[in-house]
Design a protein around this nucleic acid. Structure first.
Lengths: 337, 337
DNA sequence: TAGTTATACTAAAATGATTTAGCAACAAGA
DNA sequence: TCTTGTTGCTAAATCATTTTAGTATAACTA
């Protein structure tokens, strides 16, 4: 079964390539192709199983029907959950997804974006690491549709979908105060990306408002898992007065739970815990862990929606979307008398 | 900055398109292009930032430099871990990855494969749901490089990478017997795919060898999370004599832990537990959960390796690779006196 | 009846690469 | 001097589409 081309279809129907092309692209009525001929062409396509050659098509139209998903780490539950929903929705609308993980590494991401752009993808969903302002701006200048998520650049006019990290953090910390905990530390990354800065600010503001001095442990990004645990463990040993910890990411909460477990501290009696990014694990863990749930589904659908709109019209006004989060209170942050 | 074509490069170098193309494809020496001209062309490409148009290239060569990754569920930790490693390695070797999740749904997967094939990808890595024999065979007949993983079809001559599910299962169950547990049940899916059948067989054989009657709970694939938990919970209540459970997948172990926790049973005193597919969660959970670890890295690298070899030569002999697993014994399966 | 308009189609250019087949110039050998 | 071989390059065909700028015929209008 040799590969069929539009030419073969045209021959079988005693018509021209042009006419077949019009029918193929749904322009039969607009181009006044008779109903009979249109039906005949459609039937021949059906019977022969002819498929358009995507290379030739792309060459003329410049379209690939592929979206680039450039995220921090596909193996992180939060991102893979987003990837799953985006994928589902994209396929329904006729798009495929190429993904890559950045590790939040600036140089690596620049390389990846260059690679993707060579491939002429139709649009991009990106969680940018720091220092990517120029690349993003360049894409915008070249009218390449881009939507950022999870974080954004303050002085860049881009579409983005993020959550209200500041208030999420505030809510979580205030909840700890309301539950009777008084010495609340923050464990976060040493990143200065918007999402992290906002989580930190929310924490600081709430501590000051409650008349307390912020206590912050910043974990560098390039440390190994063991070093993470060690750092948290050392910090806990040095600051015995702490009775609660707020973790700013799910993976730090993981490390923290390991450290707490190693130190044989009881949650919440010795130390209360709240984490950012909810997941099954926190519900099942014993005690169950309170967490801030991001609206993964809404984030994902918004992302695709904005991106597809942008791909259809580059006049679309810029949308900056901030979604609210959901504090899920579980046993790890409720005082037991 | 208008798009540059190979023609522009040729003009700037006072040479022909052909010559530039030869240099571009590393055939300069073979085609006896003089060192001077080659250098000049290379420099011009460098200076102008010219990039080959992938559509035009693909049109002639039929190559996309894209691999299709068709897996059960990108949001499942096992698969996203594999996706992560495959991605890393593929990019290093100049390939990009398009992914999609099948949900192990036969019809959906057929659709997806059709879609992918239209896109002319260079090769495929697939975890096939049942009933996909014909599609896979068709791909092989059409000389499309395919490697299966996680499961395979017994009567299909395909390359695949799987783990030794039978012996993994045997090891896990025998370990429970050796630790002094006597009434061991299996909780598995009602799937008849190779990996599940082998896990079940390993369990059954080991029970019979130890003079016990197998006790198996099969959970249908289309049930909701709540129904899963309910089913396990009901089963446990009905079979009070059980003192250990072996879960055949990570997600069933999750549901099981929830059920066990709801029934206020103590692990391992009331019920010992071993799960398939290790993950961070099991190490951190209290008590830590014994699990069978799949060699995720080896699986992923083998997959890419075989696929790329197949893409280079369709004469490559078929490789059927079975990797061994690693039983990680933790507190959930050790008797406390 | 001549001119206009609508209908139903099509020839050919263009997209940007790869590759086959072959040419011109010169050197070496007979 | 003629033949053969080597070096260094190139013209043109080809890949499968989309789209522009038409054409031919029929129908309608003044």
């Amino acid at each position: 079964m040799a590969k069929l081309s539009i030419k073969d279809i045209a021959q079988r129907c005693n018509t021209s390539i042009t006419t077949v092309s019009f029918v193929l692209n749904g322009r039969a009525d607009e181009k006044r192709i008779s109903r009979d001929l249109k039906e005949k062409i459609l039937k021949t396509i059906e019977d022969t199983g002819y498929k358009q050659n995507q290379f030739a098509r792309g060459m003329r139209t410049g379209k690939t029907n592929i979206i680039g998903l450039i995220i921090e780490d596909i193996s992180n539950v939060f991102f893979s959950a987003v990837a799953r929903i985006i994928e589902e929705d994209a396929y329904k609308r006729g798009y495929k997804i190429i993904y890559c993980s950045t590790d939040d590494n600036t140089e690596k991401t620049k390389e990846l974006i260059k690679l993707f752009i060579e491939q002429n993808l139709d649009g991009y969903i990106i969680t940018p690491p720091k220092g990517l302002e120029d690349e993003i701006q360049l894409m915008i200048n070249n009218k390449i549709p881009v939507v950022l998520f999870d974080r954004y650049f303050v002085d860049l006019e881009t579409d983005y979908v993020v959550v209200d990290n500041f208030n999420a953090s505030k809510k979580a910390v205030q909840h700890l105060f309301d539950s009777g905990f008084e010495n609340i530390a923050l464990v976060t990354t040493s990143s200065d990306q918007t999402q992290m800065v906002e989580r930190l600010n929310g924490y600081e503001k709430t501590l000051i408002k409650n008349g307390k001095k912020p206590k912050i442990l910043k974990i560098p990004f390039n440390q190994s898992a063991e070093e993470n645990i060690k750092a948290i463990s050392t910090y806990l040993k040095k600051n015995k007065e702490l009775d609660a910890i707020f973790f700013s990411t799910n993976y730090l909460a993981f490390k923290g739970l390991e450290a707490i477990s190693q130190l044989k501290l009881k949650i919440p009696d010795d130390l209360a815990v709240v984490a950012f990014d909810d997941q099954d694990f926190f519900r099942i863990y014993n005690p169950s862990i309170s967490a801030i749930g991001q609206p993964v589904k809404d984030i994902s659908l918004k992302l695709i929606d904005i991106l597809l709109q942008k791909m259809e019209s580059d006049e679309k006004p810029i949308e900056k979307i901030t979604l609210s989060t959901n504090l899920i209170v579980r046993n790890s942050s409720i005082k037991v008398k």
